Amino acid sequence: MNDFHWTKLFNPEFYITMEVGGIPIGIYMVLFIVFAETGLFAGFFLPGDSLLFLSGIYSRELVETFFMIPSDLSNVTILALLIASAATLGNIFGYWFGAKSGQFLYNKEDSFFFKKKYLYESQAFFEKHGGKAIIFARFLPIVRTFVPIIAGIVHMEKGKFMFYNVLSSLLWSFTLVFAGHYLYGFFNEEFGIDLKKHIETIILILIAVTSFPLIMKAIKSRKKNTN
């Protein structure tokens, strides 16, 4: 840890390959971060989509912390299910917190971990898309942190919330984990390109792709306000 720099906190590979006393704890860090993104308001600086994509690349190393499974498909499937479970629990905590502390959040002052404007933006997003907002939000940074909280604040019917919660968690996890895993294999076998050597480029591309909807929304809002 002598070469540690605070910028590593933004690099998902740092968490995936983390060790303590020579013992790998990457899988625990991945599951905690996925939970924290919606359960603990940490969606502002912790990696989300890029973390899942890279977890797919490192699926064997991560799953071997728990199991020694020779099947490639089993490894990536188990990892996707574990991540989906953490994402589901994070949303449940966010819903519960919103139901219990809704008024407190709207009166809370801005801080590094909390920006009130994101709360209002997520509320508008939720009101526009209804229950489907929980699914859409999974693939949008920042928004996914607040949408389950909004669902709790408006006391969305629990059964309906859980349906969209589980479905969105599975879609998000399986899409990104499987994409990372099988694209890694494809590029390695077909072109001899080891994606592990291009992690920084992959992260930048994923950030650009996942941030594009938010940037477009900001541009549209600015144009609307100008007009």
Results as ranks from 00 to 15, higher is better:
residue 92 I to T: 04
residue 92 I to C: 00
residue 92 I to L: 04
residue 92 I to M: 02
residue 93 F to Q: 01
residue 93 F to S: 08
residue 93 F to E: 04
residue 93 F to W: 02
residue 93 F to Y: 06
residue 94 G to K: 02
residue 95 Y to P: 02
residue 95 Y to W: 03
residue 95 Y to A: 02
residue 95 Y to V: 08
residue 96 W to G: 04
residue 96 W to V: 15
residue 96 W to A: 11
residue 97 F to A: 08
residue 97 F to Q: 03
residue 97 F to M: 10
residue 97 F to W: 05
residue 97 F to V: 15
residue 98 G to M: 05
residue 98 G to L: 03
residue 98 G to R: 02
residue 98 G to Q: 03
residue 99 A to R: 12
residue 99 A to C: 08
residue 99 A to V: 09
residue 100 K to R: 15
residue 100 K to E: 15
residue 100 K to V: 11
residue 100 K to D: 10
residue 101 S to I: 00
residue 101 S to K: 07
residue 102 G to L: 06
residue 102 G to M: 05
residue 102 G to D: 09
residue 102 G to R: 00
residue 103 Q to E: 10
residue 103 Q to H: 13
residue 104 F to V: 12
residue 104 F to I: 10
residue 104 F to W: 08
residue 104 F to P: 01
residue 104 F to G: 08
residue 104 F to Q: 08
residue 104 F to A: 13
residue 105 L to R: 01
residue 105 L to Y: 04
residue 105 L to I: 00
residue 105 L to P: 01
residue 106 Y to W: 12
residue 106 Y to R: 07
residue 106 Y to A: 08
residue 106 Y to G: 06
residue 106 Y to V: 10
residue 106 Y to H: 08
residue 107 N to C: 05
residue 107 N to R: 12
residue 107 N to L: 12
residue 107 N to A: 14
residue 108 K to D: 00
residue 108 K to E: 11
residue 108 K to N: 05
residue 109 E to K: 11
residue 109 E to F: 03
residue 109 E to R: 09
residue 109 E to C: 02
residue 110 D to V: 12
residue 111 S to H: 07
residue 111 S to E: 05
residue 111 S to A: 09
residue 111 S to M: 09
residue 111 S to P: 11
residue 111 S to K: 09
residue 112 F to T: 07
residue 112 F to C: 03
residue 112 F to V: 12
residue 112 F to M: 09
residue 113 F to L: 14
residue 113 F to V: 12
residue 113 F to R: 04
residue 113 F to E: 03
residue 113 F to S: 06
residue 113 F to N: 02
residue 114 F to N: 01
residue 114 F to R: 01
residue 114 F to W: 06
residue 114 F to A: 06
residue 114 F to S: 05
residue 115 K to R: 15
residue 116 K to Q: 12
residue 116 K to L: 11
residue 117 K to L: 11
residue 117 K to C: 08
residue 117 K to M: 11
residue 117 K to Y: 10
residue 118 Y to N: 11
residue 118 Y to K: 04
residue 118 Y to D: 09
residue 118 Y to H: 14
residue 118 Y to R: 02
residue 118 Y to G: 07
residue 119 L to K: 04
residue 119 L to I: 13
residue 119 L to D: 01
residue 120 Y to K: 07
residue 120 Y to T: 14
residue 121 E to T: 12
residue 121 E to M: 13
residue 122 S to E: 04
residue 122 S to P: 00
residue 123 Q to A: 15
residue 123 Q to I: 13
residue 124 A to Y: 00
residue 125 F to I: 14
residue 125 F to L: 10
residue 126 F to L: 09
residue 126 F to A: 06
residue 126 F to T: 06
residue 126 F to V: 12
residue 127 E to L: 13
residue 127 E to F: 07
residue 127 E to K: 09
residue 127 E to V: 14
residue 128 K to F: 06
residue 129 H to F: 15
residue 130 G to S: 13
residue 130 G to F: 05
residue 130 G to H: 04
residue 130 G to N: 08
residue 131 G to K: 00
residue 131 G to N: 09
residue 131 G to C: 09
residue 131 G to F: 03
residue 132 K to Q: 11
residue 132 K to R: 14
residue 133 A to M: 01
residue 133 A to W: 00
